[in-house]
Simulated assay, not measured.
Amino acid sequence: MSDDLDFMPATPGKDELVNPDGPDQAKSGSAEDPAPGGDGDRAPGERAELPTWNRSRRKRKANVKAEKEDDAFQRGVRKASRQVIDTPKLVIGAIVIALLVIAGGVALTNRSTEGDAVAARTLQVATAAIVRGQVVPPEEQERLGDSIKLYRLPIFATEEDRQAAIAAAVTEAKNSGRDKVEQDAALVAAAQAMQAGDFDAALAEYELFLEDAGREHPLRFVALEGKGNALEAKGELEAALAAFQAIAPYPSDYYRPMALYHQGRVLEALERPDEALAIYRQYLDEFKKEELATPMVRKRLEALDPEFAALMSAPASPTISP
């Protein structure tokens, strides 16, 4: 049953008082002078009237003004969310996945010592500014007042302030003297460079991470995907294909679906449609269940081989028992 359900008395008294602290604390008259609508006015056997107080409705009413003031800021937050969703597929892995994985805890391996944890929190300042940071001009901040704190987002007066805060936090993490945190800082710096369109800087950071972190690092796939995206953006398609092939070479590897999809895309860009088609078919053969890249693979199959795509999407024929 909804929290918004109101319990209204059948015939509310004209002077009935409702206390927002709850029915147990409701104001009432004395025994000698019962309040209207109270027990003193009820005939024997008549149902008692239930209280009209509703916590959720009172809270909403109290916050109407704040909600109106927040509208402009809410629109800004929603716009930022849409921008992340609408980011071209080229940089989905390099920016969104990398940042969300790191921002979620800057890798669990960094929690092994107290010193690593302190350094990791510095890096989280940078990831929070990149992923959730909002630019709100000072005059708008003043207009919103304390209501802006409800969103718990990093707020900056200008884009320059946001970029400066990110750079300072990443630099501090890189100089923390903690190997694992410094490695993760390279990933954050690379993702930030990708977002800014500086693909050479991003590629340098990804290479630095891959050189230092080794093959067993849990975020290696993020760096390889980012490296492939940076190379693709630079037009170095053969090198990008090699990077995507290195992400998950075996069917049991984590992130295999996105690795195959990236390979197919680059093969198409290299004007090798037959090889791309083979990769997409391999994808559907390996992954019967819906994966992150499945809708995109099906779309490419429809473009390259409509007959095969139609065959794959056709319902199975019913089996007739003898």
Score class of each variant (00 low, 15 high):
Arg58Ala: 14
Tyr283Arg: 08
Phe287Ala: 00
Ala120Ser: 03
Lys27Val: 13
Ala193Asn: 06
Thr319Gly: 04
Thr109Trp: 12
Gly13Lys: 12
Glu159Thr: 06
Pro51Thr: 06
Asp179Ala: 15
Ser56Gln: 12
Arg78Ala: 02
Tyr151His: 09
Phe73Asn: 01
Ala246Ser: 12
Glu236Lys: 15
Ala202Tyr: 00
Ala276Met: 03
Val84Lys: 15
Asn63Asp: 07
Arg162Ile: 02
Ile95Asp: 03
Glu236Ser: 12
Pro295His: 09
Ala62Ile: 08
Gly145Pro: 08
Ala303Gln: 15
Gly29Leu: 04
Ala173Gly: 02
Leu210Lys: 00
Ala120Met: 05
Ile85Cys: 01
Gln25Cys: 06
Leu210Cys: 05
Glu182Cys: 11
Ile320Val: 11
Gly145Tyr: 06
Leu17Gln: 15
Pro315Cys: 01
Arg58Pro: 04
Tyr151Asn: 02
Ile279Ala: 01
Ala193Lys: 10
Ser2Phe: 07
Asp39Ile: 11
Leu237His: 07
Leu208Asp: 10
Asn110Ile: 06
Arg132Phe: 14
Tyr254Lys: 13
Val181Gln: 03
Lys89Tyr: 13
Val96Met: 05
Gly40His: 10
Tyr280His: 03
Ala107Pro: 05
Arg143Phe: 06
Ala201Phe: 00
Ser147Gln: 05
Gly115Ser: 11
Ala248Met: 05
Pro51Gly: 02
Val106Lys: 11
Asp274Tyr: 15
Glu159Met: 01
Lys174Cys: 05
Gln263Cys: 05
Gly133Lys: 12
Asp21Asn: 13
Arg121Met: 08
